[in-house]
């Protein structure tokens, strides 16, 4: 029983990271119609800056703040210099652009910091005993921080004027602009927020596995699975989808087969999408022709 508990909690901790990444993807997608494939690489670059902060003895807390700030600035720079000039409605061009940015970010990381993995200390050390299972305090911290971040984003989008503006821009940037919503400002905020969340996910995840140029490639893949499972247009769907993927992959690895862990998880995702194409929490969109 304690094994099952451990497997589930560990899966939730992994899934919380996928959920945060997925949330960042969905916020940017909803506000600007851009699927940001560079999210993970840019967040990774920010974590390398955080590593430099730690190496200078400024503490992990300062490193987390530095990572988020760097990611926000990077997000704004890429949005203004690379994505904005494309104009609106250039979904595939923007997608290719973000892929290019991702490759450039990885090349910069490899060139500046090398390809050898580095250790980043956890935000909190120590362990917690729950029954006969031992959990890393960092894992519980990941779950807690992710939950707080998700609730804060939920509050922002449903209870504030800015959130309303972002939702309006997501529905139709042109219409929103006509009624006085500053679409460009909203887009900038969405990119900053999305990258900030991704950097937060990265600094929480990296202490578990080590920091390498492509460390977030696999979590990004699972975050995408999570947002499709939860619904591409739903913020809480992205989070729940990510957590579901994290738990399912651990359960599959432990009780089905390690070999078919991903197969099992993605087969289930495909099955759900066949039954409900908009995902578990997404809404079907209709276009007038």
């Amino acid at each position: 029983m304690s094994e099952l508990f451990l497997v589930v909690v560990s899966g939730i901790a992994s899934g919380a990271v996928y959920g945060l990444l997925g949330l960042g993807l969905v916020i940017i997608y909803r506000a600007t119609d851009v699927v940001n494939f560079a999210l993970a690489s840019m967040a990774t670059l920010a974590v390398y800056v955080a590593l430099m902060v730690v190496q200078r003895g400024l503490g992990v807390g300062s490193a987390v703040i530095a990572a988020v700030l760097v990611a926000v600035v990077l997000g704004l720079v890429v949005r203004e210099l690379v994505i904005r000039p494309l104009g609106t409605g250039r979904l595939f061009a923007a997608l290719v652009m973000t892929m290019g940015v991702s490759l450039i970010a990885e090349a910069v990381i490899s060139d500046v910091w090398g390809t050898e993995p580095h250790a980043l200390p956890p935000l909190v050390g120590g362990t917690v005993m729950l029954g006969s299972a031992t959990l890393a305090t960092q894992d519980l911290m990941v779950i807690g921080v992710s939950a707080v971040a998700m609730l804060a984003v939920g509050y922002l989008f449903t209870r504030t004027t800015l959130g309303s503006a972002m939702r309006a821009a997501a529905e139709s940037a042109t219409t929103a602009q006509i009624v006085g919503v500053p679409a460009q400002r909203v887009a900038r905020i969405a990119w900053a927020l999305g990258l900030g969340l991704a950097a937060l996910a990265a600094v929480l995840y990296v202490p578990r596995v080590g920091l390498a140029p492509t460390v977030l490639a696999a979590p990004l893949f699972r975050a995408f699975a999570g947002i499709f499972l939860g619904g591409l247009t739903s913020m809480h769907g992205a989070v729940i989808g990510g957590v579901a993927i994290g738990v399912l992959e651990n359960l599959a690895a432990s009780y089905v087969s390690a070999n078919f862990r991903d197969t099992f998880v993605f087969a289930l995702t495909i099955l759900i999408l066949l039954l409900r194409p908009q995902g578990l929490f997404g809404t079907r969109s209709f276009e007038r022709v």
């Binding site: 094994e3 651990n250 432990s254 390690a258 991903d262």
Partner: peptide, 20 residues
């Protein structure tokens, strides 16, 4: 044998199997 997926980062399930 305790096989794990290539690229695994969460070894909690594998450690449980090793214990068992």
């Amino acid at each position: 044998a305790v096989p794990v997926k290539l690229g695994t980062t969460d070894f909690a399930p594998a450690v449980s199997q090793v214990k068992a």
